[in-house]
């Protein structure tokens, strides 16, 4: 598994899987940081329809296009199914927020089906201030 860096996010589009209205502040800060860095972000949540401050897509058929890179913030128990779904829809690289989202089994699955996977908070790459410090200690190249 590779360490994340800006190179991981090839292209200029990211699929944000698990954009949640319950973790509004966190999700919107990630969305803002990615957007600020010039990426077009497609937030997705297949459970909730309302309560969002941005257009959130419910499924792959709704998406205008499926980006090659996905950032995944779902519950650990749903991660494996999500990986399979992402693969089916043409996603090539997945960044998982942390090891609670993606355990070793999920990472092995990614390897088996040919998905490049990484684990880490995207704010280390896109954020500023304290996030830079976090990135420094985690050895993340920005």
């Amino acid at each position: 598994m590779e360490k994340i860096s800006k190179d991981f996010f090839k292209g200029n589009e990211i699929l944000f899987v698990g954009y949640s209205s319950k973790q509004k502040a966190f999700c919107s800060s990630i969305m803002n940081a990615m957007t600020k860095n010039g990426y077009k972000v497609y937030p997705m949540n297949n459970k909730t329809k309302t309560g969002f401050d941005v257009k959130v897509y419910q499924n792959f058929s709704e998406l205008p296009k499926v980006p090659e890179t996905a950032y995944v913030l779902v519950k650990g128990e749903n991660a494996r199914e999500m990986v399979k779904l992402l693969k089916e829809n043409g996603v090539k690289r997945i960044l998982f927020q942390n090891s609670k989202v993606a355990d070793q089994d999920t990472l092995n699955l990614c390897k088996e089906i040919g998905i490049e996977a990484a684990v880490g908070c995207p704010m280390m790459v896109f954020g500023s201030g304290m996030h830079r410090l976090h990135a420094f200690f985690a050895g993340v190249k920005r």
Partner: peptide, 24 residues
């Protein structure tokens, strides 16, 4: 937040490019 396909309507007074405001 405007949808990709959203168009100018009779009530659109303002258009803005920016970041999501922080409603925590």
């Amino acid at each position: 937040a405007a949808d990709e396909q959203e168009v100018v309507s009779k009530t659109t007074n303002c258009l803005a490019a920016g970041m999501l405001p922080r409603y925590k």
